[in-house]
Design a protein around this nucleic acid. Structure first.
Lengths: 144, 144
DNA sequence: ATTTTATGTTTACAAATGTAAACTAAAAGT
DNA sequence: ACTTTTAGTTTACATTTGTAAACATAAAAT
């Protein structure tokens, strides 16, 4: 589906992306402005982050004279979803539900999203198991 | 609450923790056995990971003769929850709901957890906003 | 007692990340 | 035209992570 090599994105790089996602089309100056309101990173540091993001393919740099105009190549939601899925996949299937429940508990969620969640839950209830089996050991196990 | 310095845990280290969580009290040999069924890491590599986990305080090493018996210092769910929360906090509040919904969609969840989720959703519906405001820029924004 | 095996410790080394200094060249100000 | 500012590029350097080689030593096997 996607043609870019999914090299992952670091913490600091993510901060830059947030600015770009919010501003849409933007440039170095704007990124510096907004980011320096939150972080005390000097220009040079932020420029390095931008460069690495372009290299990694997360930012598109369209030349405009001798400047660049930056845009994100994937949406924030897509990116976060991928990262979160990868993270969650580190863990035993058995406990994923618990974690998602806890995340739900402490995140602000809109009415619309809550409704979608209810639908999804009804859907899942039709086939949900009493307990999701552990998939941690080669042998299989229920104690996980 | 917790007295340990929360240095974070890496991908490879996580694989070791999974084994320990599943086995409960365990030792190097068992970890090597189980882990080498999944990964082609040589002994030395895994021993390094164990050592780093002990250093970071994620594994407890109780001496037993010249061996050690290892146990995890936090549960898998706690650990994942913390990592996931940290990750999610990188992102704009506005879209967290979407991401959680997508995670829910592609994770196996037990009947019990689904019921808990429904309860939580009913709870949240009482005060949920039409739309969660963006918190990405110093100025505030609705376009995020 | 000597060899082999198991377990643990020390050292190593490349890639990624956080963080920045130095330098270059164009643009804008005077 | 000369100076200052701005945007971009190159180089740097410590820490963390992935991955392992080398080495030490106790325990087990012969």
């Amino acid at each position: 589906m996607s043609e870019k090599n999914l090299s992952s994105i670091s913490d600091s790089e993510w901060e830059v992306m947030r600015i770009v996602w919010t501003l849409g089309e933007t440039n170095t100056k704007q990124i510096l402005n907004e980011l320096q309101a939150k972080k005390d990173w000097i220009d040079s540091t932020i420029k390095t982050l931008i460069r690495r993001l372009v290299q990694k393919g997360w930012l598109n740099a369209k030349q405009d004279g001798r400047r660049y105009i930056y845009t994100a190549t994937v949406s924030q939601t897509e990116m976060m979803y991928n990262e979160a899925k990868t993270l969650l996949n580190r863990m035993c299937d058995m406990h994923k539900g618990e974690v998602i429940l806890k995340l739900l508990k402490d995140s602000p969620v809109s009415k619309g999203d809550l409704i979608k969640m209810k639908k999804e839950i009804s859907q899942k209830e039709k086939t949900a198991p009493e307990m999701v089996p552990c998939n941690c050991l080669k042998t299989g196990s229920t104690i996980c």
